[in-house]
């Protein structure tokens, strides 16, 4: 298995339980949707996978590397995890090029530029290379955030409510486009949503979260 999550427990305080005994696994290239109502703990699960929070118990393995267990904790900046935040969190003082290049600063200059161009080609936005985030529409910002997360070739891509900032019309159009980009990049991805249609249209499999526990799983597409 490419991703293995075993018996994860988490609470922001000792008394409170946000996630309880979460276990599931994924094969390489799979897209999994975590579906649940607000407060069900789905965004917290992404924060645990990315290393922004530390679980009280459990084990996380990605690409045969243990990121978190009773005696191991790999800091978020060393995890090779890409994440698209709910509000995209594009750096407002950097243009599109600098935003995408932020995570690949160690690449030689020419290679860095080439990689940024590849990403812009993937999301079909080459002409916006020098635009600032405030000059882009919501949908364009979302694609740039996706390109930025994909640029360092992470082991896994996490998306936190990627459609929450888009209006209904745009959302319908972008859903299909997002799945195409994600599949084209071959990236193993987890995204959280509270909308069944989002989950059904994009994911290969849906994991239902209720009150911090996995209620059941559903295969939407056969791999």
């Amino acid at each position: 298995m490419y991703v293995r999550i075993e018996s994860i427990d988490f609470g922001y305080t000792k008394k409170q339980t946000v996630l309880k005994d979460i276990s599931f696994s994924m094969v390489e290239g799979e897209i999994v949707a975590i579906l649940g109502s607000s407060g069900s703990g789905k965004s917290t699960l992404l924060r645990l996978l990315s290393g922004l929070e530390i679980p009280a118990r459990g084990k996380i393995e990605i690409n045969e590397e243990t990121l978190c267990s009773a005696d191991t904790f790999v800091e978020c900046e060393k995890r090779h995890v890409g994440m698209v935040f709910q509000d995209y969190a594009l750096f407002p003082h950097m243009d599109v090029y600098k935003n995408i290049a932020f995570g690949i600063r160690k690449y030689p200059k020419a290679q860095k530029r080439q990689r940024v161009m590849e990403m812009l080609d993937l999301i079909n936005m080459e002409e916006k290379i020098h635009a600032y985030p405030h000059e882009l529409s919501g949908g364009q910002q979302q694609r740039i955030a996706l390109a930025r997360a994909l640029a360092p070739s992470p082991d896994i891509l996490l998306l936190d409510e990627p459609f929450s900032n888009l209006d209904a019309d745009l959302k319908m159009r972008i859903r299909h486009e997002l799945r195409t980009i994600m599949k084209k990049s071959g990236m193993t991805s987890i995204f959280v949503t509270h909308d069944y249609d989002d989950a059904k249209d994009i994911a290969d499999r849906i994991v239902y979260l209720e009150n911090g526990r996995i209620a059941y799983e559903e295969n939407v597409r056969h791999q």
Partner: peptide, 11 residues
């Protein structure tokens, strides 16, 4: 989100 994002991008 800004700092967390930067850290996730390896900073």
């Amino acid at each position: 989100s800004f700092s967390e994002n930067a850290r996730l991008l390896g900073a």
